[in-house]
Protein backbone atom coordinates (compact mmCIF):
# COMPACT_ATOMS: atom_id res chain seq x y z
CA UNK A 1 0.00 0.00 0.00
CA UNK A 2 2.98 2.21 -0.34
CA UNK A 3 2.31 3.88 -3.63
CA UNK A 4 -0.80 4.95 -5.31
CA UNK A 5 0.19 3.11 -8.45
CA UNK A 6 0.72 -0.14 -6.58
CA UNK A 7 -2.62 0.41 -5.04
CA UNK A 8 -4.31 0.61 -8.37
CA UNK A 9 -2.69 -2.51 -9.62
CA UNK A 10 -3.54 -4.36 -6.46
CA UNK A 11 -7.09 -3.14 -6.20
CA UNK A 12 -7.84 -3.51 -9.86
CA UNK A 13 -8.95 0.09 -9.95
CA UNK A 14 -9.23 0.88 -13.56
CA UNK A 15 -9.16 4.48 -14.65
CA UNK A 16 -11.45 4.78 -17.64
CA UNK A 17 -10.06 7.30 -20.11
CA UNK A 18 -12.22 10.31 -20.88
CA UNK A 19 -12.47 9.55 -24.62
CA UNK A 20 -13.99 6.16 -23.77
CA UNK A 21 -16.52 7.79 -21.49
CA UNK A 22 -17.42 10.30 -24.17
CA UNK A 23 -17.76 7.62 -26.83
CA UNK A 24 -20.09 5.65 -24.62
CA UNK A 25 -22.11 8.75 -23.95
CA UNK A 26 -22.34 9.40 -27.69
CA UNK A 27 -23.54 5.87 -28.27
CA UNK A 28 -26.16 6.26 -25.56
CA UNK A 29 -27.51 9.43 -27.09
CA UNK A 30 -27.53 7.83 -30.53
CA UNK A 31 -29.42 4.82 -29.23
CA UNK A 32 -31.93 7.12 -27.58
CA UNK A 33 -32.45 8.89 -30.88
CA UNK A 34 -32.92 5.57 -32.64
CA UNK A 35 -35.44 4.50 -30.02
CA UNK A 36 -37.46 7.65 -30.49
CA UNK A 37 -37.15 7.49 -34.26
CA UNK A 38 -38.24 3.88 -34.51
CA UNK A 39 -41.25 4.49 -32.31
CA UNK A 40 -42.81 6.33 -35.24
CA UNK A 41 -43.08 3.03 -37.10
CA UNK A 42 -45.38 0.23 -36.21
CA UNK A 43 -43.58 -3.03 -35.66
CA UNK A 44 -46.65 -4.85 -34.50
CA UNK A 45 -45.68 -7.69 -32.21
CA UNK A 46 -42.02 -6.76 -32.45
CA UNK A 47 -42.54 -3.39 -30.89
CA UNK A 48 -41.74 -4.42 -27.35
CA UNK A 49 -38.76 -6.61 -28.27
CA UNK A 50 -37.28 -3.77 -30.32
CA UNK A 51 -37.80 -1.20 -27.57
CA UNK A 52 -36.48 -3.53 -24.90
CA UNK A 53 -33.54 -4.57 -27.06
CA UNK A 54 -32.46 -0.99 -27.52
CA UNK A 55 -32.97 -0.19 -23.86
CA UNK A 56 -30.96 -3.27 -22.90
CA UNK A 57 -28.15 -2.21 -25.20
CA UNK A 58 -28.06 1.15 -23.47
CA UNK A 59 -28.23 -0.40 -20.04
CA UNK A 60 -25.41 -2.76 -20.95
CA UNK A 61 -23.22 0.13 -21.97
CA UNK A 62 -23.90 1.94 -18.72
CA UNK A 63 -23.30 -1.14 -16.61
CA UNK A 64 -20.18 -2.26 -18.40
CA UNK A 65 -18.36 1.03 -18.88
CA UNK A 66 -19.84 3.72 -16.65
CA UNK A 67 -20.24 1.30 -13.79
CA UNK A 68 -16.98 -0.36 -14.80
CA UNK A 69 -18.32 -3.85 -14.38
CA UNK A 70 -16.18 -4.88 -17.32
CA UNK A 71 -13.02 -4.12 -15.37
CA UNK A 72 -14.37 -5.20 -12.02
CA UNK A 73 -14.16 -8.23 -9.82
CA UNK A 74 -16.11 -11.07 -11.48
CA UNK A 75 -18.15 -11.65 -8.36
CA UNK A 76 -19.83 -8.29 -8.87
CA UNK A 77 -20.72 -9.32 -12.40
CA UNK A 78 -22.15 -12.54 -11.05
CA UNK A 79 -24.20 -10.64 -8.49
CA UNK A 80 -25.63 -8.36 -11.10
CA UNK A 81 -26.41 -11.20 -13.49
CA UNK A 82 -28.21 -13.16 -10.83
CA UNK A 83 -30.32 -10.11 -10.08
CA UNK A 84 -31.27 -9.70 -13.71
CA UNK A 85 -31.93 -13.42 -14.06
CA UNK A 86 -34.47 -13.34 -11.26
CA UNK A 87 -36.23 -10.35 -12.70
CA UNK A 88 -36.65 -12.46 -15.83
CA UNK A 89 -37.96 -15.36 -13.76
CA UNK A 90 -40.44 -13.09 -12.06
CA UNK A 91 -41.66 -11.69 -15.34
CA UNK A 92 -41.84 -14.93 -17.31
CA UNK A 93 -43.58 -17.00 -14.66
CA UNK A 94 -46.14 -14.30 -13.95
CA UNK A 95 -46.86 -13.89 -17.64
CA UNK A 96 -47.19 -17.65 -17.91
CA UNK A 97 -50.30 -17.17 -15.85
CA UNK A 98 -51.68 -13.87 -17.06
CA UNK A 99 -51.11 -14.50 -20.76
CA UNK A 100 -52.92 -17.83 -20.58
CA UNK A 101 -55.50 -16.98 -17.96
CA UNK A 102 -58.70 -18.88 -18.50
CA UNK A 103 -57.14 -21.64 -20.56
CA UNK A 104 -59.34 -24.12 -18.71
CA UNK A 105 -62.53 -22.51 -19.96
CA UNK A 106 -62.91 -24.80 -22.94
CA UNK A 107 -62.59 -27.94 -20.88
CA UNK A 108 -65.54 -30.31 -20.98
CA UNK A 109 -68.02 -29.52 -18.24
CA UNK A 110 -69.02 -33.16 -17.88
CA UNK A 111 -66.79 -35.53 -15.99
CA UNK A 112 -65.43 -38.54 -17.87
CA UNK A 113 -67.90 -40.75 -16.09
CA UNK A 114 -70.83 -38.57 -17.00
CA UNK A 115 -69.66 -38.43 -20.56
CA UNK A 116 -69.52 -42.23 -20.71
CA UNK A 117 -72.96 -42.52 -19.19
CA UNK A 118 -74.29 -40.11 -21.77
CA UNK A 119 -72.70 -42.13 -24.55
CA UNK A 120 -74.31 -45.27 -23.22
CA UNK A 121 -77.67 -43.58 -23.13
CA UNK A 122 -77.26 -42.41 -26.67
CA UNK A 123 -76.28 -45.88 -27.77
CA UNK A 124 -79.32 -47.40 -26.12
CA UNK A 125 -81.72 -44.96 -27.61
CA UNK A 126 -82.83 -45.79 -31.14
CA UNK A 127 -81.51 -43.55 -33.77
CA UNK A 128 -82.69 -43.35 -37.29
CA UNK A 129 -80.20 -43.88 -40.00
CA UNK A 130 -81.07 -40.38 -41.05
CA UNK A 131 -79.91 -38.91 -37.75
CA UNK A 132 -76.53 -40.44 -38.27
CA UNK A 133 -75.97 -38.65 -41.52
CA UNK A 134 -73.78 -35.78 -40.54
CA UNK A 135 -71.09 -35.54 -43.16
CA UNK A 136 -71.69 -34.91 -46.85
CA UNK A 137 -70.34 -38.37 -47.65
CA UNK A 138 -73.04 -39.90 -45.45
CA UNK A 139 -75.70 -38.51 -47.71
CA UNK A 140 -74.76 -40.46 -50.78
Amino acid sequence: MAHATDDHAAHGHHIIPIPTLLKVFGALVALTAITVGLSAFDFGMFEIPVALGLASAKATLVVMIFMALKYDNPVNMLTFSVGVLFVAVFLIFTLLDTAFRGDMDNVDRLTIEERERLNEQLQESDVDAEDLQVAPSDMQ
Binding site: D72, N73, V75, N76, T79, F80, V82, G83, V84, F86, V87, F90, L91, T94, L95, T98
Partner: peptide, 25 residues
Protein backbone atom coordinates in the same frame (compact mmCIF):
# COMPACT_ATOMS: atom_id res chain seq x y z
CA UNK B 1 -18.00 -2.10 0.11
CA UNK B 2 -18.31 -2.59 -3.59
CA UNK B 3 -19.84 -6.05 -3.40
CA UNK B 4 -22.21 -4.72 -0.78
CA UNK B 5 -23.21 -1.94 -3.12
CA UNK B 6 -23.84 -4.30 -6.01
CA UNK B 7 -26.01 -6.42 -3.77
CA UNK B 8 -27.93 -3.34 -2.78
CA UNK B 9 -28.32 -2.41 -6.43
CA UNK B 10 -29.91 -5.74 -7.27
CA UNK B 11 -32.39 -5.21 -4.47
CA UNK B 12 -33.26 -1.94 -6.19
CA UNK B 13 -33.67 -3.73 -9.49
CA UNK B 14 -35.94 -6.32 -7.95
CA UNK B 15 -37.94 -3.63 -6.21
CA UNK B 16 -38.67 -2.04 -9.57
CA UNK B 17 -39.18 -5.40 -11.23
CA UNK B 18 -42.59 -5.82 -9.63
CA UNK B 19 -43.70 -2.59 -11.26
CA UNK B 20 -42.39 -3.74 -14.61
CA UNK B 21 -44.25 -7.02 -14.18
CA UNK B 22 -47.46 -5.16 -13.40
CA UNK B 23 -46.86 -3.05 -16.47
CA UNK B 24 -46.27 -6.10 -18.66
CA UNK B 25 -49.37 -7.85 -17.39
Amino acid sequence: AKLGMWLFLITEILLFSALFVAYAV
